[in-house]
């Protein structure tokens, strides 16, 4: 697949010296990182695993905004995302990629966080459309968030309003390259800086009734 490099905006970094989140425990979640570590065997194993992960991305069939209308053509004969191993899954338990397609209302944000945390690691978030980057045309709207990476770790942004399905495919190609290189570590970033993300989320979701982490 021809994957053009898309410009990626820097992810908003949490404050320096933030403490890795401990209570989740070593064994269950944080044990393995995607970053290749020192031992050769482990590095090779991580490379193989990343190749598998990159070539079989299952996308959560969930649309938050108008951008999800651009996801549907991907399954049709014209664009056919299945030839890259991309498939739609209806449940977060079996999905690897969460696409935030366009504007995100605060009410949806709560559901999105819930779905994201239920996905098995490693998992990736794709911000589709300008709305996820800087608010897009919903910049001054009273009920939509302006910047997605304050609340969820975004691995790839696809700019545009709306990006065409070709742009989406190119974005997926970029994400696959990133996963193969072991650089798509948004999920790890999320767990390491869970307090920072939770603080941001609770600031905007005033009716917070979620558990600390949605297993």
């Amino acid at each position: 697949m021809e994957s053009k490099k898309l410009p990626v905006l820097p992810v908003s970094a949490p404050p320096e010296g933030s403490v890795p989140h401990a209570p989740l425990g070593e064994g269950c979640f944080l044990g393995e990182t995607q970053r290749p570590k020192a031992p050769k065997l482990r590095e090779a194993l991580a490379t193989i695993k990343n190749w598998f992960r990159a070539n079989s991305l299952w996308v959560m069939a969930y649309g938050t905004g108008c951008g999800s209308i651009e996801l549907r053509p991907l399954t049709t004969a014209r664009f056919d995302m299945e030839r890259f191993g991309l498939a739609m899954r209806p449940t977060p338990r079996q999905s690897n990629v969460l696409i935030i397609s366009g504007y995100l209302a605060v009410k949806s944000l709560k559901r999105v966080i819930r779905a994201y945390e239920q996905m098995p690691s490693p998992k990736w978030v794709v911000g589709l459309g300008s709305c996820t980057i800087n608010g897009g045309m919903y910049w001054d709207s009273y009920n939509t968030i302006n910047q997605l990476d304050l609340y969820l770790p975004v691995d790839t942004y696809i700019a545009g309003c709306m990006p065409r399905p070709e742009a989406l495919l190119a974005g997926f190609g970029y994400l696959m390259e990133k996963i193969k290189k072991g650089e798509a570590n948004g999920w790890h970033h999320y767990l390491e800086n869970l307090d920072w993300y939770k603080e941001n989320q609770k600031k905007v979701i005033t009716a917070w009734d979620l558990p600390d982490y949605n297993w």
Partner: peptide, 13 residues
């Protein structure tokens, strides 16, 4: 005042 509300509640890039 929508703008004021947004500036108070939704940080933007």
């Amino acid at each position: 005042d929508t703008v004021e509300h947004v500036h108070a509640h939704h940080p933007s890039r």
